[in-house]
Simulated scan of single mutants.
Amino acid sequence: MDNIHPIFNRNVTGINEFANSAYPEGMKIAYQFIKKNWAVLNVSTKFIDDLVANLTLTVESIKDLHKPNPKKIAFLLEGSYYLSRSIESKASRYLGAHHQIYFINMNKLNNKFLTENKIDIFVTNQGDYITEFLASVDYLVFKSLPDVSDWNNLLRMINPQLGKDVRLDKVVYEK
């Protein structure tokens, strides 16, 4: 790689810091891999940080594209019919393509339903429904009028890395 002009071995400012803050464990693994295979790489040691960051970003990109992590998410929503339908439509639209979504009523909420369907996350807008049998399931209580923080919390539960990569409340949208 040293045969390539040195400018091509360098990352632009901020890339290494970004990779390290976004994927600290990945950086450690990449560093160990590069250190172990250094002789084969035939590159100057002054580029190690850049190579580690690039390898980390490449591996994380591959994982994002090819390692699905579908969750089974059950929603039990109470209150306004229209608000419940609004939450259901958002969940279906934004989560339904990648995750299995269930919309249940109080009559279906029991251990049998949770275990037979292997529910990973239970979401409700009524804290009263959080009972002992939910001990084996991650759960989230939305506010009675859910806001961006409720959806961010759900995204973090679905994929903790996603909460580091994407934050809905940081989005500025203008037409």
Rank of each mutant, 00 (worst) to 15 (best):
I4F: 14
I4Q: 12
I4W: 12
I4P: 12
I4Y: 14
H5I: 05
H5Q: 12
P6F: 04
P6R: 02
P6L: 00
P6I: 00
I7S: 14
I7Y: 12
F8R: 13
N9M: 11
N9F: 04
R10Q: 11
R10V: 04
R10H: 09
R10A: 07
N11C: 15
N11H: 11
T13Y: 11
T13H: 09
G14R: 08
G14D: 05
G14L: 06
G14E: 03
G14T: 09
G14P: 05
I15V: 15
I15E: 06
I15G: 02
N16G: 06
N16Y: 02
E17F: 07
E17L: 10
E17K: 13
F18V: 02
F18W: 09
F18D: 00
A19P: 00
N20K: 15
S21L: 09
S21M: 11
S21W: 04
A22S: 10
A22P: 01
A22D: 02
Y23W: 14
P24C: 02
E25H: 11
E25V: 07
E25K: 14
G26D: 03
M27W: 03
M27V: 15
I29M: 07
I29C: 00
A30E: 08
A30K: 05
A30T: 06
A30H: 09
A30S: 15
Y31Q: 07
Y31N: 08
Y31T: 09
Q32C: 02
Q32N: 08
Q32G: 00
I34H: 03
I34D: 02
K35C: 02
K36S: 10
K36A: 09
K36M: 05
K36V: 04
N37L: 01
N37Y: 14
W38F: 13
W38N: 03
W38G: 00
W38S: 08
A39T: 04
A39W: 07
A39Y: 08
A39H: 10
A39G: 12
V40K: 14
V40G: 08
V40Y: 13
L41I: 13
L41K: 05
L41V: 06
N42K: 14
N42C: 05
V43K: 01
V43H: 06
S44Y: 04
S44A: 07
K46I: 09
K46C: 05
F47N: 04
F47P: 01
